[in-house]
Design a protein around this nucleic acid. Structure first.
Lengths: 191, 191, 191, 191
DNA sequence: CATGAATGAGTCTTCATTCAT
DNA sequence: GATGAATGAAGACTCATTCAT
């Protein structure tokens, strides 16, 4: 008996991300993925139940990486304003350095498949540290007394919007632009 | 010249939107659209060059409706703060009343097809009134001296984010929630 | 618009029967059928909803031919004994002359697909003339007072059993053998 | 030499029969069988050369069980009429008590695979006692002077036909119905 | 203008079997 | 003896599009 090859599922994930970047979500077929990953189409089904399952697991994996990156360097005793800035910078760095992850997330997050997979709970768990952080800010009276996820929205979307423009070639997402939106987002959410 | 039978292309658009809502983007095929619109598959090709062309035209059409709705009631001599509130309310009303439009836009806006179609110019034109409005606000010194589109981002995304949650069943997007984000967005963009 | 080509569905039926004879039920795939019928695999789906539907329709068609052949020359005012002999001879002739039909029926009649398709009613209709004929025999007191279908079983199965042996090469199903089983079957069912 | 682990090949046989009953012949794959038998797919190939071989051996095994059951209680010095009745009753009991065997035999006996496997000789051997029994009846002048297998046909098929209807839910195959066909069959084959 | 028939290329997935352990 | 990973070939079926009318 051969043992499951960690490299193989990794190669499948990687191939999927690449193809998504190159030819888009709906043209990315299992056989193309297999070819790119240099495995047989059937081998994918050794590692995943079906296409949905594979995409779902890839999504979870990528989201997890992103969430871990976002909270990197966040300290509980830090001023909240500074913490939010760290988080937004983390997010920018992660997106710019992982174009394929970003593109995948953007395309997947609006697909009905995502809703079907009911991954909300595991997502909630991943982003709990961030929500808790916001929660502390509210307790301290530094942030507006609103849903943590609403406040997060004002920090998250501007970053992704600029990253999207960056990749489209409409203006580099540099330090200056980052500083600008850190300021705007803070103005929005501060008490 | 009135281009062929308006009813038919209208029926095709409508069928596409419905199917998108019901079965999702990637399961919506030309023949299903044809069946739903009660025309022959080939008839679609009388009105459109191909699927991409059809979707692109539908996108333009929907975006146009949205942009017209957003600026409805905006007056040049109005205080900017009030104008932005009107715009955000318009957007919310439009999205909630046109779930199918919204779903289509969400699914389409991240597809690589959109980039391929190079619709940016016509989009820019549509949203020019809004940009101009923002421009006036900046001139008056009421808004931050930043890209109009960046400022718009802070008004647009929170609305769509809440609309999405609304349709997912996570909390109604009511007047209170609207007032909240109008306040936050204003705090973000005001000078 | 082209009009549906009667020849095409006929060619599909014919190809199916041939392949069944040559390579068996479970190796007869849609693409092989298409190749043999000299149409595209997708063309089959213009004429039939799916494989089951196609096989079901073929079954009905073949059974109908068989039932029509079986009652050919049966007269209501004929002595029942003679009628049953006619029927058995008809059946033998039909089976020997239509090896492919026979093989198809044999393979299909034990497949669970048949049960799934619920063709019982249409079958009952087809064989009603035979049942009625048996019914008259019972009324006249010439046949045993038992279910018509049970009496028919004693006339039907021996013919198919001998036809099967005939095709396997185990003894020709000639006039003598036919006479023998006509006698046996009559002894079985007569009052 | 006890051939490997009897339990395992038994489990494989059992799993095959179960699946056949549940999902039908053509959906019963080696991996499903393996899963149901709680062995690895490759283990099946330790015991059998391939799928055909396995099915052939299962067929032989089941046929053997059936033939043994059919002659159970048959005595050489018994009146033939009584012996045939015993045999038909045995067959009915066997079929009704072993639905999965019956279903397997029915589905397999018309498959071209069976012909390919050339099991006729071993079958002949199994049913030799029955043929001999018939032979004695013919010598005594009690049965018609015809092929033993033809006479057997008149005893065998009616039982299977009623068993099939029984399992389809069309009338219980009870003692009365059994008595009826014992009478009919005897009328058919008696001299 | 409008159509339904027709199709080659492609979809996802499962298959029987073998390989490496 | 026993196994799970691995696979090329094939499965049924759908697709966007074109053809003939």
């Amino acid at each position: 008996m051969r043992h499951k090859d960690e490299n193989k599922s990794e190669a499948i994930f990687q191939a999927t991300l690449e193809l998504l970047n190159e030819i888009g979500f709906s043209d990315t077929s299992m056989s193309k993925i297999a070819k790119r990953a240099q495995v047989s189409p059937s081998t994918i089904y050794v590692y995943f139940a079906n296409k949905e399952d594979m995409l779902g697991k890839l999504y979870t994996r990528v989201k997890e990486k992103m969430s871990l990156n976002m909270v990197h360097g966040l300290e509980a005793d830090q001023p909240v304003q500074q913490g939010m800035a760290v988080m937004m910078r983390n997010l920018r760095d992660f997106l710019l350095e992982n174009r394929d992850y970003f593109l995948f997330l953007e395309q997947f997050s609006n697909s009905p498949l995502l809703a079907k997979l009911c991954l909300d709970e595991s997502m909630a768990l991943m982003f709990k540290p961030l929500h808790d952080y916001i929660g502390r800010g509210k307790q301290q009276g530094v942030l507006k007394q609103l849903d943590a996820s609403l406040l997060l929205t004002y920090c998250y979307f501007p970053v992704t919007a600029l990253a999207k423009e960056h990749f489209k070639g409409n203006g580099e997402f540099n330090e200056d632009r980052l500083s600008e939106i850190i300021k705007l987002s803070w103005d929005a959410i501060k008490a």
